[in-house]
Design a protein around this nucleic acid. Structure first.
Lengths: 353, 353
DNA sequence: AGCCCAATTGACAGCGCTGTCAACATTCGC
DNA sequence: GCGAATGTTGACAGCGCTGTCAATTGGGCT
């Protein structure tokens, strides 16, 4: 005879409590998986929740409690168009949805003067529970300190430095770059060009170190003669780097780019110049972003488990928020060399030392 | 002598009220730009707000009032990795930030059985004020009806159908496709291949109509002989479409793909087969996504003002939410033909009718 | 000056939930 | 079988803000 609560836009905790014949607080306990609820009570409450299709109100929860169930993804505006960030978003979203969190997307300019204020404001205004960030944001002490001060947990994806606090999910950039270089060495290449990544992105520096490691290990002279050019992670900067490298009197026969976009730029430039790839020039990238398979020839690169890393990052953060961190804060995921059509044996050289 | 409120994590409306010597409610009025506040009072309150760096608490606002300052972006999981969605996100984010809104990212599977429930739950649980959606989600009556029922405003980006209610930002797909086709006709092409877009994405159907329009206008026989192949908006499906088209006894000399990813797939397939582009085959895309400039040869395509359209969509929605809709709900933005290297004169034909 | 209407302001009751704490129920140890 | 320890439950007071409505003020007019 009473008004069915289903008519309401959404059932409240009170409706559930009434239906289950318990107090509001007990429903709250069940919803939040708190201990000390009798099994039979719990079942009754869950039945009521299911019947009313009850969804806790996030605003009320956030206002009353200490948690907002909001997680933020921070990245540089620069990356905003990258396939990398899309994959990160997907991974995070997947995990957030499972755990009942919402994801807030926050591109910020990492070079901005008032970055700290921007982030402080974001933290306090949006009431986020924690954040996940990618380089170069993750590499800024200003930012991580800010989170520390606010006592908000955060997870850095592939930070390029040791984290004083906070969690991280990393990958073996240096080792992977070493493997790429060794792959080219094994193909007989001796004249190398290296396209550096964005200098503020420390993971990029690690890639360069791996490159150096491999060359030095093979022959110090190689490291000597290899040419390094600065790039900025973009397709355009890859083209420019290629222009520089291929204009050398003794141009390289293999170019290692610190990411796929730049490698694609190199290939594109070489194509324009009529260079045949890989016969006349081998090119490698890093990341295995979609573009690696969409250009011709397809790119030899390093596959980063971006999506699984993001899922992991979300899991770490959510575990931390739930107060049940398992194990240590840093997790390393392996990457994998993917050999495609952009690399082959070095062209015949005039001489051999 | 009193404790400086700046020590607190964040100032509350009460702090501001005290400092300005007015009531909480008056501060609320100023914050929400409500009328009937004396200019001098308003100034005093604003000064206090500035001094305390006060940020209203979104949760409290949302709980007490009717607005959550949360907007959702709905799109199909399918699109989740596309450059298109990235650009949409950027545009929306830009505008949301200006207006103090947060953006919630919601990829959903448009083929899912319980899509309606998923969205209903999203609306009620996250307390969103409104949503912006892209096809194919925007083309589903189930979804738009759902928003209508909940009385939540929404904006559709390039919906393929007349909207019964709701706002939209559109572009002249049909006309643009016509222009592309005319460009190829002017280059002397007579054997056309058309790669259809995803059938559930109605804007893609409009593109096909534009193609038909142009052919019929030029010569009905052309429309007769043109070959249409189904694609699904992906690079991969573009490659498959190309395989079908180029295996024909009389393969086309020009292939019009309904988006850039598929066009890139066509070019990639042609490359693999050793076909020279554009000399032996002209290819066009649609959208002007980044890939258009990253492949070789660069793609002749139609530039969609995606970012400005998204900004506009956000503006429309926010205006609607603020109760001050200006003008009508549908806005059409112009697109532009961008001629690059993937199209040229038709190769010499054996005969001419 | 006196009266009325509109502009301006504030008191107060929640929004739906969680934290605190006290009340009550059950179990354990001996 | 009794007190203590523990498990289980609910009453209640807000969280920070907005909506409602009543109180107060200021002007314009006669």
């Amino acid at each position: 005879m009473s008004n069915p609560p289903s008519q309401r836009a959404s059932a409240t905790i009170e409706d559930v409590a009434k239906l289950a014949g318990v107090s509001i607080k007990t429903v709250s306990r069940v919803v939040n998986s708190e201990p000390n609820v009798r099994v039979s009570t719990k079942a009754a409450v869950q039945a009521a929740i299911a019947e009313l299709n009850y969804q806790p109100n996030r605003s009320a929860r956030s206002l009353a409690g200490r948690r907002s169930y909001l997680i933020s993804l921070l990245y540089d505006t620069f990356l905003a168009q990258s396939a990398y960030i899309m994959r990160v978003q997907l991974g995070l979203l997947e995990e957030c949805r499972k755990a009942g969190y919402e994801l807030l997307i926050h591109p910020v300019n990492y070079e901005s003067e008032n970055l700290k204020e921007t982030i402080t404001r974001h933290i306090s205004q949006s009431h986020i529970d924690g954040a996940i960030m990618t380089p170069p944001i993750a590499d800024l002490l200003t930012v991580t300190n800010c989170f520390q001060q606010h006592n908000k947990p955060y997870v850095c994806l592939t930070p390029g430095r040791e984290l004083r606090s906070g969690l991280s999910v990393e990958t073996d950039n240096r080792f992977a770059a070493q493997k790429v270089t060794q792959h080219l060495l094994a193909l007989g290449h001796t004249r190398f060009g290296f396209v550096r990544g964005h200098p503020d992105h420390l993971a990029m520096v690690q890639r360069e170190q791996g490159f150096e490691d491999a060359l030095r290990e093979a022959a110090p002279a190689l490291a000597q003669s290899a040419m390094r050019v600065q790039g900025y992670n973009t397709f355009q900067s890859g083209m420019e780097a290629a222009a520089t490298l291929l204009a050398l009197p003794e141009p390289p026969t293999a170019i290692i780019a610190s990411n796929d976009e730049m490698a694609a730029g190199v290939i594109r430039y070489a194509n324009e110049r009529g260079l045949r790839i890989p016969e006349q020039l081998s090119v490698t990238g890093f990341d295995d972003s979609p573009i690696a398979e969409q250009i011709w020839p397809p790119l030899t690169t390093v596959r980063q488990p971006v999506q699984s890393m993001s899922v992991l990052a979300a899991k770490l953060l959510i575990a931390e928020l739930s107060g049940k961190r398992e194990g240590k804060g840093t997790t390393v995921e392996a990457s994998e060399l993917v050999i495609r059509g952009s690399t082959t044996k070095a062209p015949q050289q005039v001489s051999q030392k």
